[in-house]
Design a protein around this nucleic acid. Structure first.
Lengths: 336, 336
DNA sequence: CTGTTAGCGCTTTCAA
DNA sequence: TTGAAAGCGCTAACAG
């Protein structure tokens, strides 16, 4: 039924070793022989069995990527960076969605490891002790991508989320805002949640503004939670004049909530966020945001992983990529 | 280094066959033995090698999913449906992005087949002769998901794109619009492109409106191309009063273009599209759209694939799911 | 430059 | 209920 390397060998009148060589581009084959083999392959429609190959060679040329939420545009862009570099180095990638659920993440990591991937890229989300346990039992390299673990035990590439948030809030402060609200992600999320919240607080402190926890709402990164949070802020007796959102999508929810209430951006409220996804331009007014280099985060982490898989030694295993602020139209000076 | 089934067998004082049985939940194992084996597994931290297992059993319990564009929200939602059902039937899925490039699609299909997936789900995009060739050489079942081939040779699940488009345009016509523009996808794309364009034409014809090709622009499904197309329509000497967009994202681009020109929706232009992605609510005015049941398309196609993989016989191999129109705020009556 | 021959780690008859 | 043993399709020494 299925044609194997053995069938090809017979058809071409050579040994399977020779067929294996031509399939793997081993230079030690006489051109004439190579041609014969290729013809046999063609004639028989031979397709190498990657499973058998993986078992024999103990390499699958496949890296597993766990993505916390496939419907999040940020991760999609990171994935694109991962892919391009993976292709460049002739690795296949298998993407596994984990639905933002910790237990599913662990499950997926183990599945990937059972499938004998040559390396693992773990994207986004919190890295808990359970993750670390799963990682430790892996005997392939692992790189964290757009996240990092608390003690920097695992190689990672990311931006400095705390600083990105700090910069965003500072932008608001530089425009004269003093009463600045925040729509945060869950504080359990070290990167998009906790770190950005810390940056927010530091900026306030720096500017001598006392932190007020009535000005902070926790969202779930979805549009609707941005709407909800903003609704709350608008109803506050003493409204903020600016809002810092941990992510673009919630920021857009906030903008629409403001507009639906008959108020304006940036007239009544300035809005800024961290991410700068494609969405930032897909709203009116367009969103001012601190940009994280999603594609690069993916590309660099994949590149790091290839080095690790080839056992090249790497200078630094924790890399922080630069971020920058992209000014559009959602931030203005404070109302007179 | 790595612990194998043989190590576990020795540690537990049984044969590898027995270990294999407990790992695979074969009932023919005495509970006491089973317990011993589990303990040995625990003690050694044994993780079954899926590659070896796949080679021996000729099954990988894995299905390959090729997704044309990972950054497209529609496909993300379909993928979610696929996943849920896959998990339910204990299949792993490996997602491969094909970047909307035909040659990459073919490459990815072949890679997946080499990896010995038990089935293949091909999402979106055109199904060309080259695809069919790759599919034919596969000896595992394949189902098309959110697309279909010209002659319905391959099992598929989708909506009736032609009818969906027809319904959308009819909605516009019922509101009194006669001069209706379309932002189409490429006509090479059978589903989102060609079929929706056909539906547009049929609706016009039905209403006795003569088709005018200056009112059709081809976009690439991106926001920016919606903006471009709309810019063109606005500058037309004889402007349309309504716009039908093949997809949500282009529709949103069109809406913003209208607003940026100082015009309004639905005052100056009504806008309608097919998709009804999450984005449809993330714009002001909110987008009226014909909803395709993305999640269901994914779920049903995966369910169909499981049947095919188990060689159960299926009644119909081409299933069309129903669509419906979701009225929001972007469509109004024609100006007096 | 090419062939022979062990495995890779597991499943699966077949016997016991 | 358990074990022995034969592969699954391929790679990788090693020999020639």
């Amino acid at each position: 039924m299925t044609v194997t390397i053995y069938d090809v060998a017979r058809e071409a009148g050579v040994s399977m070793a020779t067929v294996s060589r031509v399939v793997n581009n081993n230079p030690n084959v006489k051109p004439a022989t190579r041609k014969k083999v290729y013809e046999a392959i063609e004639r028989l429609g031979y397709r190498p069995n990657a499973v058998a190959r993986g078992l024999a060679s103990k390499k699958t040329t496949t890296v597993g990527v766990v993505i916390p939420d496939i419907s999040n545009a940020i991760f999609a862009e990171v994935a694109r960076g991962i892919e391009d570099i993976a292709n460049m180095y002739h690795y296949n990638i298998i993407l596994c969605n984990a639905d933002k659920k910790k237990d599913k993440e662990i499950r997926v990591i183990n599945t990937l490891l059972e499938k004998q991937v040559d390396g693992l890229l773990f994207m986004g989300g919190a890295v808990t002790e359970d993750h670390l346990v799963a990682f430790r039992t892996a005997n392939v390299p692992i790189v964290l991508c757009a996240t990092s673990d608390e003690n920097d035990q695992i190689p990672s590439v990311d931006i400095n989320h705390e600083e990105a948030a700090y910069d965003a809030v500072m932008k608001l402060i530089s425009q004269g805002h003093r009463r600045i609200a925040m729509i945060s992600g869950t504080l359990q999320d070290p990167a998009n949640g906790f770190a950005r919240f810390q940056g927010y607080k530091r900026a306030l402190e720096q500017a001598g503004i006392t932190y007020d926890d009535t000005l902070v709402r926790i969202g779930n990164y979805r549009y609707e939670s941005g709407v909800e949070a903003m609704k709350y802020f608008i109803e506050l007796p003493e409204r903020p004049t600016a809002v810092f959102s941990a992510t673009d999508e919630m920021a857009i929810g906030a903008i629409h909530c403001i507009q639906d209430s008959g108020l304006t951006v940036p007239g009544d409220f300035s809005v800024i966020s961290v991410d700068n996804s494609r969405m930032a331009s897909m709203v009116r007014p367009q969103l001012t945001a601190v940009a994280q280099p999603m594609y690069d985060i993916g590309a660099v982490s994949m590149r790091l992983l290839t080095k690790l898989m080839k056992k090249e030694n790497v200078e630094q295993s924790k890399v922080l990529l630069p971020h920058e602020i992209v000014v559009r139209q959602s931030v203005g000076g404070v109302q007179a």
